[in-house]
Amino acid sequence: MSSRESILKQVKANKPAAAPLPATLAFPPLPAADVLEKYVRIAEAVGTVVMQVESLSAIGAYLKKHYETPERVLNTVKGVGFGQELSGPIEDGHTLANLEMAVVQGTLAVAENGAVWVSEEHLPIRVLPFITEHLMLVVSEQDVVNNMHEAYARLDVSVPGFGAFISGPSRTADIEQSLVIGAHGPKRAHVFIVK
């Protein structure tokens, strides 16, 4: 018997009595303004800089004002107007080893934990939002949801080959529980909420 068969056989023989899958949880929706306020509060608490902007070009203007070297910036969001704009795929992620900044479209943002869903559909290569030193995420204001139940109700996470909830810059507290921002991923993270 293969291991597959023997495992399945033993699992079948030993499994406990039938138990139903509980109903999907849902909670009353919050007013949009409260959701947005909550998002900003919690995202900032996890180390994200949140900017509410009127338009995509306002992001470009902000970046121009605050960052001087657009050479090592990859911008994958059309209309932002900063850094090297890119629409096609990237073949090899290793070429991004020294990337300073990436501007990336997020699908939605979750108020209760500050996370942004980043899908492969919006990425030229999977490693981009992880390998960059500074991650700039762009999310439309109407795509901020209250909690994870609302997020999963809106997403089909199996459509892209890869997608991730990203909440803030990478971090570790492995040494004596002291929080250090910037472990292996970005050291800084911005989320631009576009009206």
Partner: peptide, 25 residues
């Protein structure tokens, strides 16, 4: 996952979610 990701990091470290929750398909 909505249920488990709400519980996991809050239980583990008190964070609302881990920085990365990566879905590989």
């Amino acid at each position: 996952l909505s249920v488990f990701l709400r519980l996991l990091a809050r239980s583990a470290t008190g964070q609302p979610i881990t920085t990365y929750s990566s879905h590989f398909h």
